[in-house]
Design a protein around this nucleic acid. Structure first.
Lengths: 217, 217
DNA sequence: CTAATATATGACTTATAGTCAGACAATGTA
DNA sequence: TACATTGTCTGACTATAAGTCATATATTAG
């Protein structure tokens, strides 16, 4: 009989409904001012029930991070598929990453939070483990594209693709973060710098990266 | 009479003693598990007194961040002075930054925290304002070095020094962060990537950056 | 219809940031 | 020295929010 299956399905639905409610709450204030009581109310459940589905507030936030990662992985995969040559794939990934950070700033923040705290709670809950696993996918996509580029001659062959993938991911993270958090501050404090839009700066960064990856002439 | 001055001096001393105690506590656990009661005990003061010197727990943490920024600015300044050419200065700054993150990981974490939350509390307390001001100094040092490099011909002239300074700072932040938080994880999960040490990867990153900044031949 | 199981509840416990009325100490005045 | 004033410190108290658990309710099985 399908009762067990139906129950499992219902449980999954409820779990997702809780994550939906949590997103509403987390995304409407700063992460640390959202309360479990608020989330419970938004989900039309009691607080105790939340803890039947998630080990802790952090675990629930991690489930949101997980959703963000899935979106990001999807965007990376599509970006890579669209382009033929390695260097084009890298460029497309970069654009996709920036586009993700603009379209889904809350998911981006969640991922930044996860990145900053990952070693504290890694693999303590199923959700954390899933995040750790999913978190590696973007890196692998970048690495594969670098390898492709080396093979097709659009990327210099004396780079180490694994290390370069980490470098590019780390750098992109940091750049997007500083632009989203501090660009306005910099503009206000140093008008004489004539800083352009984030898009302009990202574009500048792409030029630099392109130059560092292209084969020597 | 010098009583007013002496009192001011004593107040400053006590303030610093509290920051000392706070560092002991913050640096011995994760930021969010440190309690004001613990800090009060370590400072041999009552909790109420802490709040006479700092507006909040976050404000106290910001005072620690401030110390880290001062150290970093000092290291950047010295690095820049040691070298003659622009590109050498940039390289020296990069080394200094990495070295800072290894010698003072707790200060580095504090700065990362500040960077991630700066727009939330900017300029709400004197300490926050000082941090915002001091936080700009590294960027300016990088920018000046880029300008110097363009002038002395060691850096290509078609980059925008202000934008490139932001790019380099953001990228460096992100790279150091990912290496300190996730390199071990990557090594464990993907042994086939044959990842080397953080130093190796940093070195690789320097090569890439150098290539992107050097004048075209 | 009853027992067994699964799910949900919300009052309760615990932990901790932040407050404040009163205690105590240092300085100024006569 | 005595007393007033000002500055500093205290810790019990309040408020808030995470997480728990005994109990209630709903669902399924026999």
């Amino acid at each position: 009989m399908g009762i067990t299956e139906r129950k499992a399905r219902e449980k999954e639905l409820r779990r997702n409904a809780i994550i939906d409610a949590a997103e509403k709450i987390f995304f409407s204030r700063e992460m640390d001012t959202a309360t479990m009581d608020d989330i419970a109310e938004a989900a039309e459940l009691s607080k105790g029930t939340l803890y039947l589905y998630f080990k802790s507030k952090e675990d629930l936030y991690l489930a949101i991070t997980r959703r963000g990662l899935d979106i990001l992985i999807d965007m990376f995969s599509k970006a890579v598929k669209k382009k033929k040559y390695g260097i084009q794939k890298i460029y497309a990934i970069g654009l996709a990453y920036y586009s993700f950070s603009r379209k889904h700033p809350d998911y981006f923040n969640a991922m930044t939070y996860f990145l900053a705290h990952s070693q504290e709670f890694n693999e303590n809950t199923p959700t954390a483990m899933e995040c750790a696993l999913a978190g590696d996918r973007p890196l692998i996509i970048v690495r594969d594209s670098l390898i492709k580029g080396i093979e097709d001659g659009t990327i210099r062959s004396d780079i180490n693709p694994s290390e370069t993938a980490i470098i590019l991911m780390g750098q992109s993270n940091g750049l997007i973060q500083i632009l989203s958090k501090n660009l306005e501050h910099f503009k206000n404090m140093h008008p004489q710098f004539n800083l352009k839009s984030a898009e302009n700066i990202i574009d500048h960064a792409f030029n630099l990266i392109h130059r560092s990856l292209e084969p020597s002439t």
